[in-house]
Amino acid sequence: MKSLLKNAREQKGLKTRELAQLTGIDQALISKFESGTRKPTKDQVTKLSQLLEIDYETLMVVWLKEKILYEIGDNEFALKALLLVEQEIQKNKKEIDFAILSSNQIILDEIEALKNQLQSFNHFELRQISKTLELEFIFKSIHSNGNSLTLEETKSVINEGTTISGKNMQEHLEAINFQEITTYIKDLSQKKTGLSEKEFLSIHNLIFKGIKFENAGKYKNDPLVSREMNLLFNWYETHKNNLNPIILASEIYLKILDINPFEKGNLQIANIIMNWILLQNNYIYSVAQNDKNRPNEYFSALDEYQIKNDKSVFINYILKIEKENLINAIQLNAK
């Protein structure tokens, strides 16, 4: 680690004093990091990785390696202990995933039965239901971003091209853009297109089509973001066939919010990608937002995840929305 830090600092042409000012880390500490007499904290590793443009994963792996070596040294039982640690980590991960699946198995089975009931409707019935659900998705998506168009006004804008008096142009464009996005992700779903950077950036660009925002379709200027997004796409590829699609979609939503890859539009794209995955697996739209029917439940679920690192509460929240939406979709056919 000491060589990585020193070489990176010198390549950037920075003195230890200058790096200290940029990071807020004491100059004496930085010198000790580079001499190997002190180890940085995890937060300090993150700051140094960003400012010195060192690959975060590389630096974290080296940091963890040195931390482990410091603890176990050359103890004769070290290798056996490390093997047990690896097994324990893998076991814990599987147990967490299994616990989430098991605790939600009843509602997952109910959702599956409702989905099958919905899919049993004829083509005409499904098309009419789909139109209603798409309109609701567009309305809820723009409403969660502060758009003041009502449901009926949103319908008029996207179906008839109406200009609503008293509403600004951006509000109209947001509705039109989300209509285009629903068509786009529906097409991707039918083609079974997998989640990739190309589609991810294209969707973000569509959110701001015609709206003045020069960074549409572009990540933040932060090397960590690109690295974290690549890890997300790799995680998706690894888990897309072995995780329940609703759990997969919920976790993708949380991961996007964690990374916060764009200057604007992170909440919208998290919702869009989650719903793309749901549609691809024959589920229906589930917009995560603060709902008047369950005040603060959305933020409570997010807080539980962010404070306690417990994703199960948020996943359960999405499962409840999906179940309710499926019931409502089925009832649409009876009207």
Score class of each variant (00 low, 15 high):
W63N: 11
Q87I: 02
D310N: 15
L151N: 06
I203H: 05
D74Y: 08
D222L: 07
K323T: 11
I185N: 06
E95R: 07
I181N: 08
Y56V: 02
N234C: 02
E297S: 08
T150Y: 06
Q105V: 11
H172Q: 14
M1Y: 03
G161N: 09
G36M: 07
L254F: 07
G161L: 12
H143S: 12
K240N: 11
L118M: 11
Q27G: 00
H143Q: 07
Q306F: 03
E76Y: 07
L224S: 09
A175Q: 09
R17G: 07
E76V: 13
E171M: 04
K220Q: 13
V62Q: 13
T46K: 06
R38V: 02
E199C: 00
E174D: 11
I30Y: 06
I315Y: 04
E10A: 01
Y56A: 05
S300P: 00
L5T: 00
L201F: 10
A175S: 08
E324R: 13
Q87E: 15
F233N: 06
L48H: 05
I211T: 09
I284F: 09
L332V: 02
L332F: 15
D55F: 02
E57M: 06
Q170N: 12
F77D: 12
L319E: 13
I54S: 04
F139G: 05
N290A: 11
D55L: 01
Q190C: 04
S35F: 03
Y285H: 04
I307M: 02
I252T: 14
E134N: 15
L59A: 01
I318S: 08
Q128G: 03
I211N: 05
P40E: 05
L201C: 14
N168A: 05
E180S: 14
I107Q: 07
I142E: 08
Y283F: 14
L114R: 09
I129M: 13
